[in-house]
Nucleic acid binder design. Structure first.
Lengths: 217, 217
DNA sequence: TAATGTGAAGTTGTTCACAGCG
DNA sequence: CGCTGTGAACAACTTCACATTA
């Protein structure tokens, strides 16, 4: 339909769009039909024109003098982000975090279906978690190809993240979400996202430290 | 010692510093003594001058014509970020993710000690996880004050995140790391970080979609 | 001499302000 | 009339280029 423009879209815009979707969903559940950029901005903690700019990358979804129809806007963003479909996902590294993700139902609710889990620890192989049997990592490349998986999630210890990434790429994966606290190297055409909550702990620690030293002035 | 400058430090700088620390640690373990901004940049996937600029916010840590002493630099960054101490942390919401964090040893290794866990589900209260008894959330404010806790981690379902935040603030917490996929509102002086892996899944999905449509041109 | 530290240039992202439209 | 959509102004961040120094 839209998606006609071809400027490069800022990363920041994408992650804000994700926030908008989330808040729009809540509104929809509350029965709110129309929302202005002003009000949505307030809820998301951003500037109203920011929202309008972000949306403008993908099309014109609003009605002047009125605002945005909540349901319509949500669908438009979902479509723009490529979320109007399901994505097959595999997970590598069945530790604490891996298990939590396997059991997490929000992923599935958002269209990300974990179709296989892998680990190289013989003690974990064969174990069943959330209806999924843990397989040996060596089987990963073939499985992902057979199951037409496009996204890989890495939840291994840091030192094994690169190896996991290599297996995933061998399996023809197109994007990786890396929860391990270490950088991985991949060719340009593989999209990599890092989820490192320790960094956020660091940020908070830093901000607290700074707020306190500011208080002393 | 340093920390003399008082320009505002970009958020982005902070999160990159966290990456540098991580990579420096790996190097130290490998016995590497000296590193240039060039090489470190390569490992971290950033521009060399970016590193030098980032470090310049905090002081001069390098030796011209030589580079940076790995151990020294790591310590300098840790100190600058306020990581040369331990931080008491409480966790609210003992679901899959909460459990995973409680059992995660990387947090403690980095100086973040979870000293208490809370949940409002009577079935969970009393349960012991990673040597910590789950307490009723109503006890949170008093406990955090008594234990001198500065950071709260929220791992509740989204609809309960705000309530958790309120309890934490009542308990005198100064910073919050919110893993729940919903915005929370707090006064200015509370530092809030959002960890939302779903957003990263969205980003990857979007990038894959875009790469593919690029391929069609 | 090699690599840092840094002003200046360049790039990217954000906010403003208002024209345009339902 | 009110709120969107958007060019223009602004702010923030990144990279360049080179003077500086161990």
């Amino acid at each position: 339909m839209q998606q006609l423009k071809f400027e490069r879209i800022p990363r920041a815009t994408i992650s804000r769009l994700a926030v908008y979707v989330q808040e729009l969903e809540v509104m929809e559940q509350q029965g709110i039909k129309v929302i202005s950029s002003e009000k949505l901005a307030q809820l998301c903690g951003v500037n109203p024109s920011q929202i309008r700019k972000d949306l403008a990358y993908f099309g014109e979804f609003g009605v002047r003098g009125v605002g945005y129809y909540v349901h319509e806007l949500r669908e438009a963003i979902r479509q723009s982000l490529g979320l109007d479909r399901t994505w097959n996902v595999v997970l590598v590294g069945v530790g604490n975090l891996g298990r939590a993700l396997l059991r997490h139902n929000l992923l599935r609710k958002r269209g990300f279906v974990i179709v296989a889990a892998f680990d190289c620890d013989p003690f974990k192989i064969g174990e069943e978690i959330a209806g999924l049997e843990v397989n040996c990592t060596s089987k990963l490349p073939k499985s992902t190809r057979d199951m037409n998986v496009e996204i890989g999630v890495i939840t291994t210890p840091p030192e094994r993240a690169q190896r996991a990434a290599n297996y995933l790429m061998e399996g023809g994966i197109k994007g990786i979400v890396n929860f391990a606290p270490s950088r991985i190297t991949t060719p340009e055409n593989i999209s990599v996202e890092y989820v490192d909550f320790i960094h956020h702990m660091f940020s908070v620690a830093f901000n607290i430290t700074q707020n306190q030293s500011k208080g002393l002035l």
